[in-house]
């Protein structure tokens, strides 16, 4: 796979599959033994765990993702993104606030043979909490 093909996998994941809530399509672009170094508490292992994770995000935030930048080398793809949403459902135990927000993050994926196989990220939880009115 070229780095351009790897980038296309990540763009498809963020902008097409997540935004259209197409969980079934994850079978095509995520390896079954997907390893998440940034797992949510209680997130199960592998692709099945990733499906739980994104379903939780859909329910909690109804988010829309935008990819602002992509950088790739070898089998690694970095995506700088934001998503906008509304806190309409419980999120990791936080009761819904009904507030709208835009959240920033940078994700790093390993892509192996056309499938996402490993993941690290840092997201701006501080900014999210501020916008949800959860900080003192």
């Amino acid at each position: 796979m070229t780095i351009e093909a790897n980038k296309a996998v990540i763009r498809r994941y963020k902008e097409d599959i997540l935004n259209s809530r197409d969980l079934a399509a994850l079978d095509l672009i995520v390896s079954e033994d997907y390893l998440d170094h940034a797992a949510f508490p209680k997130q199960g292992p592998g692709r099945a765990g990733l499906k739980q994770r994104v379903a939780h995000l859909f329910d909690a935030f109804d988010p829309h993702w935008t990819v602002h930048d992509i950088v790739a080398e070898r089998d690694i793809v970095v995506a700088r993104w934001s998503h906008s949403g509304i806190h309409r459902g419980e999120f990791l135990g936080l009761q819904p606030t009904g507030r709208e927000f835009t959240m920033r993050g940078i994700d790093i994926y390993r892509v192996t043979a056309g499938k996402m196989s490993e993941h690290w990220n840092v997201v701006d939880m501080f900014g999210l909490y501020q916008q949800l009115g959860l900080l003192p």
């Binding site: 940078i106 501080f126 909490y129 003192p136």
Partner: peptide
């Protein structure tokens, strides 16, 4: 330069923001 830093975790570790019950469960 652009960045994303886990400032919430830092504030929590410094005791400036309560550890959310949320994150632990």
């Amino acid at each position: 330069h652009w960045h994303v830093v886990d400032q919430l975790a830092q504030m929590q570790q410094l005791g400036l923001i309560p550890q959310p019950e949320a994150a632990g469960d």
